[in-house]
Design a protein around this nucleic acid. Structure first.
Lengths: 347, 347
DNA sequence: TCCAAAAATTGGATCGATCAAATTTGGAGC
DNA sequence: GCTCCAAATTTGATCGATCCAATTTTTGGA
């Protein structure tokens, strides 16, 4: 068991040449079935595995995707990235792709990392997890012809349909529509919203889902709806204050939908009445405390990201990507849970 | 800006040969300072980066470390792995190492992945995040001469000091000593413990920290201490039941230390009195709800893991690893927070 | 000043795979 | 049986770096 077998060993064992072995691996249709079988059994016998680095040197492709591991953001919703990463790694594997991690301290540093990884032929594509209008990173990537896909829409007016910028995102508006509709269906009318101040791409999008649904409902008037909205910073403690503000509105509030699980958790803690509250992201906290939340279908996002990457890279687009094969918007789904056994402390 | 520069381009630009450029990069001490400077400025001018795959093909080393991305375990404590991964990636980068992700459905599948990644020369070491006595994975790795380090001790009697098994771990016993001592110092005497059933390597270790401290204290008798312990499954809801059991013990309980943040969160939710509760892992949940918790120094763990890997790999051990240069136990620290504004609901 | 030993540098070969072009094979058609 | 063409297979070159052995330059002592 000295050396690992190479193509040459397989070729000798099967009584063919190197190239034929290579063809069996990469272009099986070129090889006659009888020959193919001989080679395949030799591969199995010897336990041959292609040497990844050698292949990459020759083909100038790394079959590796780079992704930045963000420093824990606020914390609670960090698990979304975590789950996304897991889905991505799993699916990349089935396509023969690998995920390489890197970290960066700021956007400029990140660009430096892009360059480093690209020049070393370490990766041949990047996945970015959050971008913004005029993001220097996407600009650099486009200018330098690096292929990449972002999880999250670029929220600038022009950017959104830029054919050079491939993205996959979750339809937050749809998610909040679902959440709001769910509460309306249970007979509640005055549904409040706790979100982030505008402008915030994702925030404004989610808010719209609530707003539109409320306007279409037969409940509060437009003026009343406006009073049922509170925007605040992200964080549990801000959620506490926000729900108290909502509860003190004339007419009160009968249910709340939030832009995040952190805000929802705060709302649950701060709420003096036991009103239903729905979060966003379906984080472990929501699951363990037991409140409803909108779940992002991260498997689908991962699939979309890889489809776009391999499609763009290989030059061929998948058949079912009918309308816009460069962007993909997937629908989240609402996870309904009973109101948890959690309330305010009698301090 | 057609092709990326190669060693030959740099050599030509600097007026030296390929090998000299290679020496500047890999064995600078062999090159005369004057020559070295010339080469270095040529490298900078051309923006040359060595082609990672070519180097790996020649040297048969990948400078890449593989790590399995676990499927989200129970959820809440999943963020520990996340933070560890971040620390690892960051520090690996400073040593010129890269982190490659993979997933696996079970231990056997994981071994298959080891093989795949090794044969493809994709990685030259692995980091395992949790091992157990008689773990088939570590056995395979040792048998096949693969270098690896585990985060977590192998809890078997013989395994622990196996010189072939490098590990880094956090001293959970010390952590629970700190937590228990902290509560004792505030004047409380009857400190309870909520943990997992034996045998559990980490669980038993943490429990010991609480038990020893209680025995050394001037508080409850040994018999009373035994009543202050509840073991249960991991999970928030189990924590709820556990704290209620403790509160109904004759004499009650004045404070609780837990084996995990999930249990601590459950205890907080289930507790009818407002007693201080300390968790373990200092997860985002602990931070946002605001209860005390024992924090694992993941940066130090990451440093240790890489030290052991590069030490074992390069054959040289760091100077300050005095006692046992193959294993490293780091001390966690207690993060103290006020009792949170969270209690039981008046259902 | 000269010579041997040490230091620095050079060109050729190589890692394991794939590409490109050349060669052989097999089968249809006459 | 023979020609011819397409399909199947083989051979030679190459990707970019490092290793190895050989060569040239420098250093230091007599």
């Amino acid at each position: 068991m000295g050396q690992l077998p190479t193509v040459l060993d397989v070729a000798t064992a099967a009584g063919v040449s190197r190239q034929t072995v290579s063809n069996v691996l990469n272009s099986p249709e070129l090889v006659r079935p009888a020959t193919r079988e001989k080679v395949e059994s030799a591969i199995a016998d010897l336990g041959y595995r292609p040497h990844a680095s050698a292949r990459r040197l020759r083909t100038q492709k790394s079959s590796t995707i780079g992704i930045r591991l963000d420093p824990m953001t606020d914390g609670i919703s960090g698990s979304v990235l975590d789950r996304f990463l897991h889905a991505l790694t799993e699916q990349a594997d089935t396509k023969g792709l690998r995920m390489l991690l890197f970290t960066a301290t700021d956007p400029d540093d990140e660009i430096r990392q892009f360059q480093r990884l690209r020049d070393g032929a370490d990766v041949d594509a990047f996945v970015l997890t959050s971008t913004f209008h005029g993001d220097p990173r996407t600009e650099w990537l486009i200018e330098n012809g690096q292929s990449f896909v972002t999880f999250g829409r670029p929220w600038g007016i022009d950017d959104m349909n830029d054919p050079q910028h491939l993205w996959v995102d979750v339809d937050g508006r749809h998610g909040l529509r679902e959440a709001t509709t769910h509460l309306l269906k249970t007979g509640l009318r005055r549904i409040g919203y706790i979100g982030w101040p505008s402008p915030s791409g994702t925030g404004d999008d989610r808010r719209l889902g609530w707003l539109e649904t409320m306007r279409e409902s037969s409940g509060p008037t437009t003026a009343e709806i406006a009073e049922l909205e509170v925007t605040t910073q992200e964080g549990v403690s801000f959620g506490v204050a926000a729900v108290r503000a909502l509860e003190s509105v004339p007419g009160g509030v009968e249910g709340v939908v939030c832009a995040s699980d952190s805000l929802a958790l705060g709302a649950l803690i701060g709420s003096t009445r036991r009103i239903p509250i729905i979060g966003y992201d379906n984080t472990p906290v929501a699951a363990s405390i037991g409140f409803s939340s909108v779940e992002q279908p991260l498997d689908e996002v991962a699939t979309g990201v890889l489809d776009l990457l391999t499609g763009a890279h290989g030059g061929k687009l998948s058949d079912d990507a009918v309308t816009d094969p460069r962007h993909r918007l997937v629908k989240p789904r609402l996870i309904v849970r009973d109101v948890p056994t959690l309330g305010v402390a009698t301090r």
